[in-house]
């Protein structure tokens, strides 16, 4: 059997059509949002363990060691590409579904009692997500860009000290973590529902775990800059 270039092209075309059709349905979009959301959640955990090294009382030696290892590791480099793609998909689809949802009801109700029928967190996913996005840009600007792109001479630890001695940034950091907590209060369990994982046996545990995660992870993130601001 011989293969020429058009056949390869057509195979790619067929696959693209299949994926594009399948994932452009509302259920497909939510599938991607949930997968990327859960991926971002695992990223948060890895990131948090790294940050905890800032609390070690050794003038940043272990933290610098860690961040150096991270930036030299090939696996991490590859994961970074996944991470950026994940963010782009999550944000892109998040914006798309939010716009479509807004357009689906052009004339709003005169009396709105949605607080009686659904949770606050579930209705403001776009708002909390967007503010987390703004935070993300600032965050990349203060850590990722100077170290990875511009290769400034400072160590990661020194950067962290400088950034977290700026009271405005510390306040914004805390604010962003509150919003991340809101985002996850709904997002964590919602991702499982979007993937079709729902059963009386384990859904209550997923919901509990989600609330615990949404409370504890952003809290620990937020404690670190506060600690540095006051005690380092």
């Amino acid at each position: 059997m011989s293969y020429d270039i058009t056949e390869y092209k057509n195979t790619i075309k067929d696959t693209k059509k299949w994926l594009a059709d399948g994932l452009s349905r509302s259920t497909g979009k939510k599938f991607l949002m949930a997968m990327t959301g859960l991926f971002l959640i695992t990223f948060l955990m890895v990131h948090l363990f790294g940050n905890l090294l800032l609390l070690v009382n050794d003038n940043g030696i272990s933290f610098n060691e860690y961040s150096k290892n991270m930036s030299h590791s090939k696996i991490i480099r590859v994961m970074e590409i996944f991470l950026f793609t994940g963010f782009i998909f999550h944000i892109g689809f998040g914006a798309t579904v939010s716009i479509q949802n807004r357009l689906a009801r052009k004339i709003p109700y005169a009396v709105i009692k949605s607080s009686e029928t659904s949770s606050f967190f579930s209705r403001y996913m776009f708002h909390t997500g967007s503010l987390v996005f703004i935070f993300l840009l600032l965050h990349l600007n203060s850590f990722f860009i100077p170290h990875r792109v511009l290769e400034s001479g400072l160590s990661m630890y020194e950067s962290a000290l400088i950034v977290f001695h700026n009271p405005l940034f510390v306040l914004f950091y805390i604010f962003a973590m509150i919003l991340l907590s809101f985002h996850l209060m709904h997002g964590f369990q919602s991702a499982f529902q979007s993937l079709g994982i729902h059963h009386n046996k384990y859904t209550p545990s997923i919901k509990l775990l989600g609330r615990f995660f949404a409370l504890v992870v952003p809290l620990v993130f937020a404690v670190i800059p506060v600690y540095i601001y006051f005690w380092k």
Binding site: K29, N101, E116, S119, S122, M125
Partner: peptide, 15 residues
């Protein structure tokens, strides 16, 4: 038909 996407808010289940 132009319906919105599900955000798992559960308002439907409630009502």
């Amino acid at each position: 038909e132009g319906f919105g996407n599900c955000s798992n808010t559960a308002a439907c289940e409630f009502e």
